[in-house]
Design a protein around this nucleic acid. Sequence first.
DNA 1: GGTGTGACAATGG
DNA 2: GCCATTGCCACAC
Length: 121
Amino acid sequence: MTERSSVRQAEKSDNDSFFCRVYDVTCMIPRGRITSYGAIARYLGTAGAARMVGWALNSSHSSERFIPAHRVVNRNGMLTGKHHFGNASTMQQLLENEGFTVIDDTVLEFGERFWDPSLEL
DNA sequence: GGTGTGACAATGG
DNA sequence: GCCATTGCCACAC
C-alpha cells in the first residue's frame, strides 16, 4: 500500500495518469517562478523519472489547458525543450515576459527564482 | 507483453 | 572542470 495508490483511489479519474499530474503541478507554478524537471518528478514521487516529466510536457499540447512549460527547465536552468514550443524563441520570450533573463538558452535567475513544489506545495 | 524512447539527473574519467 | 556514460521510470509502438 503506497501513498500513490491511495491518491489514485481518491482520484479514480482520468487524472490518475502521470501526465495529468505533471500538467497540474506545472500549472501550479507561480508567475515569476521557475522549477526543474527533477523537482516536479520528485514531488510526484518518481524522482528518477525526471525524463518522464519532460516527455509529459511534450504531450502538454494534447491537454486542453494551457501548460506554462516555459517555467520548467533542466537542473542547469537551460531551456532544453524550447524547440517544442513551435518556435525556439517562444519559450525564451515567455520567460523574459515573466521577468527572467535568458541568455544562451539559460535562465540566469534560475538559482534565485527556483520554485520547488515539494517545498512550496 | 517486450522493446524503445525521451524537453533529465547523477556519476565517472 | 568539462565530456561521456549510465540509470531511471512511465508511455508509445
